[in-house]
């Protein structure tokens, strides 16, 4: 056992929440996650969206996609499974109809994108480059969605393939690329390294974990595609472990962490594991301004723990004190 780190509480006003991610200055770490914020407008009813540090859009493909058959979602213990199928308006309509609203918000705009094959990824990156001077700050390359059938899976699970794809996209756009990693890979740090060495400015993780729910009465899967993606607090411990593994192996790679963040304490765990900015996903559904509440709770908790700034605690996790060596004693008999 290790004793708590003893620090004196400080005033919440003395807590500096600013953070940097791959050279990007953010007023605080809290963003919203792709697929859980649509294109932002709906949230204006419930919150001041411009208070976010940033947001990641619904995944954009070169052409519009219509999404998967029903049912598409089910709730599970501390989470939910979705199989929406990357439904989106397509790059052209996104730039024309959705981007202007986001550009006016003065938050960091990350456009999540994907393609159905490698050429489509590159084409999408090229198309979205037209938004470079119209409000897009980052392209978040989704190599990790479990819900499209064609190809896809090797992009997210084989480092060499991810490296090649990332390199092509980096060369196709002037915008910085952050690669969003899947937890459904054998060696997540190797995937992060492959993306970073190919020119990505950082990584974001985790996407959903491939999962299944079963309705025992109908003997059918709870989502029509049989398997979907698990999100919510259920995945948080897995996400933390992966963020920590990447940060431990590759401390230079900027990490945007996510996976079931619901509270300030969750956020602080991710920062301590090695993330320097964070995204809130599933929580937005039940509580649209969740990311801003998390920001406020993070400030309060940091003050309580005497943490004055974010860089001080990013990746600060130490090991437990070693136990005294065990020496076998004489037998009782």
């Amino acid at each position: 056992m290790s004793a708590p780190v003893r620090t004196n509480p400080i005033s919440p006003d003395a807590v500096d929440l600013t953070t940097t991610f791959a050279g990007l200055s953010l007023p605080h770490p809290m963003m919203t996650a792709s697929g859980c914020f649509a294109y932002g407008q709906q949230f204006a009813h419930f919150m001041d969206v411009s208070q976010l540090a940033g947001l990641s859009t619904k995944g954009i493909s070169p052409a519009p996609r219509m999404g998967n058959p029903l049912p598409r979602i089910c709730e599970t213990a501390s989470g939910m499974i979705n199989s929406i199928g990357l439904e989106n308006v397509g790059a052209e309509a996104f730039l024309a109809e959705k981007l202007p609203y986001l550009a006016d918000l003065d938050v960091s705009v990350w456009v999540n994108f994907f393609g159905e094959d490698a050429d489509a990824y590159v084409r999408c990156a090229e198309m979205l480059s037209a938004g470079a001077d119209r409000g897009i700050d980052v392209l978040e390359m989704n190599i990790s969605c479990p819900n499209i059938k064609k190809g896809g899976i090797e992009f997210g699970t084989v480092p060499e393939v991810a490296h090649r794809l990332t390199k092509r996209c980096v060369e196709a756009t002037s915008l910085p690329i952050v690669v969003k990693l899947t937890p459904n890979a054998a060696d997540v740090p190797a995937m992060a390294q492959a993306a970073y060495e190919a020119g990505a400015v950082g990584v974001s993780l985790i996407n959903t974990i491939t999962a299944m729910g079963i309705d025992v009465r109908t003997r059918k899967p709870r989502v029509a595609t049989m398997y979907g993606g698990l999100s919510g607090p259920a995945v948080k411990p897995v996400a933390l472990r992966m963020v920590h593994q990447i940060h431990t192996k590759h401390p230079d790679i900027p990490i945007c962490g996510m996976g079931g963040i619901l509270s300030g304490e969750d956020a602080l765990e991710f920062l301590m594991a090695g993330a320097s900015c964070l995204q809130v996903g599933t929580a937005n559904f039940s509580e649209p301004p969740a990311a801003l509440r998390v920001r406020d709770e993070l400030r309060t908790l940091m003050a309580e723990l005497g943490i004055s700034n974010i860089p001080e605690i990013v990746g600060c996790i130490g090991r437990h004190d070693p136990e005294p060596t065990y020496a076998p004693e004489a037998s009782w008999t």
Partner: peptide, 10 residues
């Protein structure tokens, strides 16, 4: 539905 306001697309 998870959200009720057009975001989750469930």
């Amino acid at each position: 539905m998870a959200c009720g306001f057009g975001v989750c697309l469930g």
